[in-house]
C-alpha cells in the first residue's frame, strides 16, 4: 500500500461517514417532533453533505483516476464504502437519531481537532472548516441528549434504550489498521486509539448529566471502516441514494 493509496482509503472513511450520516439525517425531512428540529436536522445534514463534497473531492483527486466526488458517492457498491457501522444504523425514533448523532459528533469533533494540524495542508484546511460546524453539532446533540435523558420517565427510558442499542458500534471508532498506521507515520492523522480519552471525557460528562448509564459490555461490532462487514442497512440506503445515477447512467444533473 503506497502512501497515496492509504490516504485515499483514509479520505473515503471521512467522506463516507459524513455522506451516510448526512443521508440518514436527511430522511427526517418534514417528520421531526417540532419545527425547530426540522430546521436543525436539515442544517446538520446539509453541513455533512458539504463536508462529503470536500472529503470525497480530495479522495478523488488523490486517487487520480478521473473519478470525482459524485462518482465515488453514487457509483460504488456497499463493500467499497468505508464508513463506520454506527452511521449506517437506522434512524429509529428521534432519540436514537440524536444519540447516534451525539456519539458520532463527540468522536468527530475530537478527530477534526487533531486533523487541523495534519501534515497534509489539504486535510488540515478541510478539517478546520468542518470543525466549526461540528463543534456546533456536538453542542446541539449533547444538549438534546441531556434534555431527553433527564426529561420524563419515558424520554429517559427511550434514550437509555438508544444508548444500549448503539453503544456496541462505538468501539470501531478507535480501532487501528494498516491504513491508520500509514497515516500516523506520515503525520497526516492521529492514531485512532489516541482519541479515546478525550471522547470518553465528553461522553461521560454528557451522559452523567443526562442521567444515562454507559452499558457495561465493551463488546464492539466492526467491519465498516474497512468495508469487510457492513450491516444489512447500508445496501438499502444505497439503493435509494444511488437510484437515479444507476437508472440513467452518464447524465448531467
Amino acid at each position: 500500500m503506497t502512501r497515496d493509496e492509504a490516504l485515499f482509503e483514509f479520505l473515503l472513511r471521512l467522506g463516507d461517514n459524513t455522506l451516510i450520516l448526512g443521508h440518514r439525517v436527511s430522511e427526517w425531512c418534514g417528520h421531526a417532533p417540532v419545527l425547530e428540529e426540522d430546521i436543525a436536522l436539515a442544517n446538520t445534514a446539509l453541513d455533512l453533505i458539504g463536508q462529503t463534497q470536500m472529503w470525497l473531492g480530495l479522495a478523488a483527486e488523490v486517487e487520480g483516476k478521473g473519478r470525482d466526488a459524485d462518482k465515488l458517492a453514487f457509483l460504488r457498491d456497499a463493500w467499497d464504502f468505508r464508513n463506520l457501522l454506527l452511521v449506517e444504523m437506522p434512524n429509529g425514533d428521534f432519540g436514537q437519531t440524536l444519540m447516534r448523532q451525539f456519539l458520532f459528533d463527540a468522536w468527530h469533533s475530537v478527530l477534526l481537532g487533531r486533523l487541523m494540524t495534519s501534515s497534509d495542508e489539504r486535510v488540515a484546511a478541510i478539517a478546520a472548516k468542518a470543525s466549526k460546524e461540528v463543534t456546533y453539532h456536538l453542542e446541539r446533540s449533547a444538549d438534546t441528549v441531556v434534555g431527553l435523558g433527564d426529561g420524563t420517565e419515558e424520554s429517559h427510558a427511550r434514550m437509555q434504550a438508544a444508548l444500549d442499542y448503539l453503544w456496541p458500534y462505538v468501539g470501531e471508532m478507535f480501532r487501528s489498521d494498516p491504513v491508520d498506521a500509514e497515516m500516523v507515520a506520515a503525520g497526516i492523522a492521529p492514531d485512532p486509539a489516541s482519541l479515546r480519552e478525550e471522547f470518553d471525557g465528553i461522553v461521560s460528562r454528557v451522559l452523567t448529566e443526562a442521567t444515562l448509564e454507559i452499558p457495561a459490555s465493551s463488546f464492539g461490532h466492526k467491519g465498516g471502516k474497512d468495508g469487510s462487514f457492513h450491516t444489512e442497512h447500508l445496501g438499502h440506503l444505497l439503493s435509494t441514494m444511488q437510484w437515479l445515477q444507476r437508472a440513467y447512467p452518464g447524465c448531467e444533473w
Binding site: G22, S26, D38, A45, I49, Q53, A69, F74, L244, W253
Partner: peptide, 26 residues
C-alpha cells in the same frame, strides 16, 4: 420535496434541496 432528498442525483443537488427545505421550515 423531502420525497426526493434521499434520491437527489448529485451531492450538489442534494445540498441545494436540503438548503431549500431548511429555508421553507424557517
Amino acid at each position: 420535496e423531502g420525497n426526493w432528498i434521499t434520491r437527489a442525483p448529485t451531492l450538489e443537488r442534494k445540498a441545494i434541496l436540503l438548503a431549500k427545505v431548511q429555508d421553507e421550515a424557517g
